[in-house]
């Protein structure tokens, strides 16, 4: 009978089966959501913007690049929801397609920059010594410039273009992330469970990835969210200055930059809507980051409960 079968190792250790793990995650997410309603709202807005960006070609009412010289500088109407620019291009369609480019730049640069920062921080915190010294010196040089100036410098070196903008913004994200991860590693390294793993003969590589790295994920995630906002801001600033995404391709930043040519009577709708979109998106990233930090940091969590 079944009773004679030896109990599985999982039953002995009391570990949960994968199926119920998902249920647990679902429950803790729901619990977190109740505690941080603002975070949920921000997440929903961000996801909607992402969906708009992904489906841009299907939902945009006009071709974002198509000029129409009979319809230049028209204020918002039922046909052109957010008006048209100086070349008669539909502002609403440009904003939607701009979301695609801006978010693509922001997301890829944050992924590249923050993953690099994570790995560098892990190695530099755990290995210490020469590797740490060299990494920290190099990062200090990167930190010695205001973010925007550093991105500009890299863009001069790499030349303008989608790929180079991504790289430039990614590089500016590395030092901060690396420092945060490194500081977490430095404290986690001294914990007893790490010592126990070392005593059991685990290799440094295994300790680093299986025991230390998971501890850094929570603060790292918070950083990723906030960095997403900073990356959107960086792209907007660079493109606004004319050294980021090059026109005619629309991005939120260069739509604002286009207004600069209209020094005599800038149409208000061309200033208001792209800027508002940037603000709302960055705001949502910040709020989501704040909520994540409150939920993931046990010290704050205890205070909230």
């Amino acid at each position: 009978m079944a009773t004679s079968a030896p109990p599985s190792p999982r039953a002995i250790t009391g570990a949960v089966r994968p199926a119920s793990l998902f249920v647990q995650w679902g429950r803790s997410i729901a619990r977190g959501a109740r505690r941080a309603p603002l975070g949920v709202v921000s997440a929903i807005i961000l996801i909607s913007i992402a969906i708009v960006a992904i489906t841009a070609t299907d939902i945009a009412p006009f071709d974002p690049l198509k000029t129409n010289f009979a319809q230049t500088r028209k204020p918002p109407t039922a046909l052109h929801l957010l008006g048209t620019d100086n070349l008669g291009r539909d502002s609403f369609s440009r904003l939607i397609h701009g979301a695609r480019i801006t978010l693509f730049v922001a997301v890829t640069s944050v992924i590249i920059g923050d993953l690099t920062g994570f790995v560098l921080g892990l190695l530099s915190g755990y290995l210490g010594k020469t590797f740490d010294l060299i990494t920290q010196r190099i990062l200090e040089v990167l930190l010695a410039f205001p973010t925007l100036i550093l991105a500009m410098l890299l863009l001069i070196g790499l030349g303008a273009g989608l790929r180079t903008v991504i790289i430039a913004i990614a590089v500016t994200r590395v030092p901060g992330t690396c420092r945060v991860v490194r500081s977490v590693v430095l404290s986690v390294r001294e914990y007893q469970f790490v010592e126990a793993a070392r005593a059991m003969g685990a290799s440094p590589w295994r300790i680093m990835w299986r025991h230390v790295a998971p501890q850094c994920v929570a603060p790292w995630l918070v950083l990723v969210t906030v960095n997403l906002g900073s990356a959107i801001f960086a792209e907007a600033s660079l493109s606004f200055l004319g050294i980021g995404i090059q026109p005619p391709a629309p991005s939120w930043g260069n739509m604002l930059g286009g207004v600069l040519a209209e020094a005599f009577k800038p149409p208000w709708w061309l200033v208001l809507f792209p800027g508002l979109t940037i603000t709302i998106t960055v705001l949502c990233c910040n709020l989501l980051g704040d909520s994540l930090r409150d939920l993931l940091d046990p010290r704050i969590r205890k205070r909230l409960a």
Binding site: L256, P266, N286
Partner: peptide, 13 residues
């Protein structure tokens, strides 16, 4: 969350 250069553009406007 407001980009300062956008605030600037708005003030000019």
């Amino acid at each position: 969350a407001v980009p300062s250069f956008w605030l600037g553009l708005t003030l000019v406007l």
